[in-house]
Design a protein around this nucleic acid. Structure first.
Lengths: 108, 108
DNA sequence: AATGTATATCGCAAATATACGATAGGATTT
DNA sequence: AAATCCTATCGTATATTTGCGATATACATT
């Protein structure tokens, strides 16, 4: 049981689900907001602002990076994370495709 | 460990995370598409189309219902599910608020 | 009343996510 | 060179999600 059946859906469905999962936690939304506001990309500042341990924040950053919504590069001793607006546009396009289908759906 | 820290974020962040979680699985996206296309709301047809057991589909429907993205009413012996466009608009608005912050975010 | 049909829920197993402390390793500072 | 700082990763505990079969329930049909 609990076999992974995700592969049996379309690529678009899987892609949108992946994006959605990336922002399916308030901590990760908060991280994105911090990155957007600061315009710069200091990891340590995120840890300071969030009510989570450093290791937990690092894990959330990794998930956002895996989904492609942020990029991370090593900047000397520190790590520099920043939003990938391109991927975010793709996220919105994919979501809007679903929304377009759904928005005029009548109810019984 | 693994204490739930979600409460420590803003209501908006929690709300968007909830919506996102609802569509964070390809099966649930597929269900929404079926409901949107058919315009009517027959649960049995969803089970036929998806590569999942009836009980699993029922569970996914429950999660979509909990998130408010669909409504479900008992229609005789059958159950009638349909999309709630109002909630979906709210989803999009909440997402767009994040997107607006993020879209012009420069990178290092 | 008995049978069949449709759907929800229970109980379980496996997988994944969440969270932390400890630790490792690479820079920077002293 | 040693100490310190920053961040990633490992190990671990717990919680949640995913999936199914079996069962219960509610209506429909015979």
């Amino acid at each position: 049981m609990a076999i992974n059946k995700k592969e049996e859906f379309t690529v678009e469905e899987q892609e949108l689900a992946e994006f959605a999962k990336a922002i399916a936690h308030p901590a990760r939304i908060a991280i994105l907001k911090v990155l957007a506001q600061k315009q710069s990309c200091i990891c340590g500042e995120i840890v300071e602002v969030l009510p989570l341990a450093q290791s937990t924040v690092s894990q959330h950053l990794k998930e956002l990076k895996n989904a492609g919504l942020i990029q991370g590069t090593i900047e000397g001793a520190k790590s520099c994370y920043c939003i990938d607006p391109e991927k975010f546009r793709r996220f919105r396009t994919t979501f809007d495709t679903l929304f377009a289908l759904v928005k005029n759906s009548g109810c019984c």
